[in-house]
Design a protein around this nucleic acid. Structure first.
Lengths: 328, 328
DNA sequence: TTATTTTAAGGAATCGATTCCATACTCTGC
DNA sequence: GCAGAGTATGGAATCGATTCCTTAAAATAA
């Protein structure tokens, strides 16, 4: 492999001069520039980033920690992150925890030893060990999807949006509303969305029926099984169900279809998450769209800001919209 | 930041000893080990990868070049790659060309300057500049999705699988089959799938109607517009259409539904790509499943093999299966 | 014409690891 | 009691860049 020394020798200058040329700082004569340029062209020389970052303490790499890559939400977020990073000449080192949320801590350490300039964390919890790991980090970390007190975060308005959706359902005349959620270690998805559901029903003096509140994981199967439990519970059927993700909703709809239960006439369904699947399934799903790609981009911008100066902790409550379709 | 020198000083040994301890090679006494361990524990020291890889010429990072991240196919492939890399203690540097296929060359260079140990290329063309860039590369590259002659490749059996699907449609009684494809710079998707279509019809003495052969891009909209053109073309309607991706098929189905054309009774639809959308759309889509996650894993394994010895060029024709559902 | 600034370029230290080599001590076995 | 093997450790060179400092020539000002 050609190094800066080879280039220096071939161009008959010192390696300091080559370095000055490469970084366009300091003085380099036109003659020298031409010779260096020519030699670089001929040899196809590319500076070693390892050497460079050993000196400069910058790698131009941002670490991204995801729970899972193969979901539409995740890939949209990554797409948004990628756009911004690429525009700013950063590369993305992607790691996934496969939903094992203790791994988030492990990866924060790992990424730092890889000398990333910053970390984007799509967090699934806000427990103490994680907060501690973040506190001990020597590089800026920005959270996406959870409000982590000690660092800048891009937060989805889970409570607000879910509340609005439930309001919309009530306004449409549904009075017996069920809920399919996930475990509560996840404050944003597990707790906030459920709290909004309960609060909104209560506000309208509607009964919160425990038999219609299910807790599963993020899978389609989980949605299917949860809906099955709701239907097979002793109590009456609900006339509407809110699912915390569109995947869960798809599973739930699947069960209803098998049982010949009409959506939305017998039971209406709403959810969070604007996947193409939610859009093209029948009936098309009424959902909250958290504009994930944009959220990813904003988080990346926030991180880059921190990398280039401003150290203030910023909290951005990201935008959302209701996509009213045919399932409610 | 703490360095190996700090550890050496604090543990009262030389930095050679610390290094030997870290890499568990050479002699280190139990006493020394304990002291070093303790100091590392206390300081939270993590060795600098930049320094390490400057010496060893290994970064433990694999570059991945994708056309686009936010498709289900891509994210499945990435998921498979990620699994294997993580098992082997490699990290993944992800880049996307946003479907600008000249960028593939740029990224091959960029990733090398980042000193990646190897590159996984989800190629969309096999043109000379790309082949040249691959030839000039100093790290192993494995291709996925296209057969690139000079390097190991994991290849989808595009011709075979498409042929089998068309056979299946013919066997089901369809005689007037249309085709929605993509541009032909992409040999695998653009050329092979079309060739299989034409060959299979010809083999069965069926007419290949030019009005029913469309060329678009990979989007849902493109599928919608292509189907519109087919229906609005002067000639009779086809009784079945094959789309080269499930996204395209979804768009095509959308148009048919709007026109109250029954699927599969009036027109049957088949495609390539086993997305969840294809599974849950109505009618559920009969597709070729190229088992993308597995393909990604195999490509990653192939690359790791090359990294640890064997230099032979391997070609793996990946498995596939037909998922017979309700759209044909 | 001399003093000062600007331009140009090389030398050497440095970043944080790894690794080869030399040195020294402790055991065995004869 | 001594040769030779095994164990333990430190010194120094090295990887490929950046960057500060010094020197020197050229350009400008006084």
């Amino acid at each position: 492999m050609t190094t800066i020394n080879d280039i220096a020798k071939l161009a008959e200058v010192s390696r300091s001069t080559v370095s000055r040329y490469l970084n366009s700082n300091g003085y380099v004569s036109e003659e020298a520039k031409k010779r260096i340029m020519k030699v670089i062209e001929e040899t196809g020389y590319m500076p070693s980033q390892s050497a460079k970052s050993l000196r400069t303490k910058k790698t131009g790499v941002i670490g991204v920690i995801l729970p899972k890559i193969s979901t539409e939400t995740a890939s949209r977020v990554v797409s948004g992150i990628n756009k911004v990073l690429q525009q700013n000449d950063y590369q993305m080192l992607l790691t996934t925890t496969s939903q094992e949320h203790k791994k988030e801590i492990e990866f924060i350490r790992l990424l730092q030893s890889r000398n990333v300039d910053g970390i984007l964390l799509l967090a699934t919890n806000t427990e103490k060990p994680l907060i501690d790991a973040i506190g001990n980090a020597t590089v800026p970390i920005v959270a996406l999807g959870q409000d982590i007190p000690t660092i800048s975060s891009v937060i989805y308005p889970d409570y607000l949006a879910t509340g609005e959706m439930i309001e919309y359902m009530i306004q449409k005349g549904y009075q017996h509303i069920g809920f399919i959620g996930v475990e509560e270690y996840d404050p944003a998805v597990g707790i906030e969305r459920k709290r909004a559901f309960v609060d909104t029903l209560t506000k309208h003096q509607l009964k919160v029926n425990k038999d219609w509140i299910m807790q599963g994981d993020f899978s389609i199967e989980s949605g299917y099984n949860s809906m099955k439990s709701i239907i097979n519970s002793g109590s009456d059927r609900p006339d509407a169900v809110f699912a915390v993700t569109d995947q869960i909703a798809v599973g739930a709809m699947q069960f209803l279809k098998e049982q010949q239960i009409q959506i939305p006439n017998d039971i209406a369904i709403a959810a969070t998450g604007a996947s193409r699947l939610a859009q093209y399934i029948e009936p098309s799903l009424t959902v909250i769209d958290f504009l994930n790609e944009e959220a990813g981009a904003i988080a990346a911008e926030l991180l880059i800001e921190e990398l280039t100066g401003t150290k203030a902790i910023k909290k951005i409550i990201h935008d959302y919209r209701l996509l009213v379709r045919n399932s409610v």
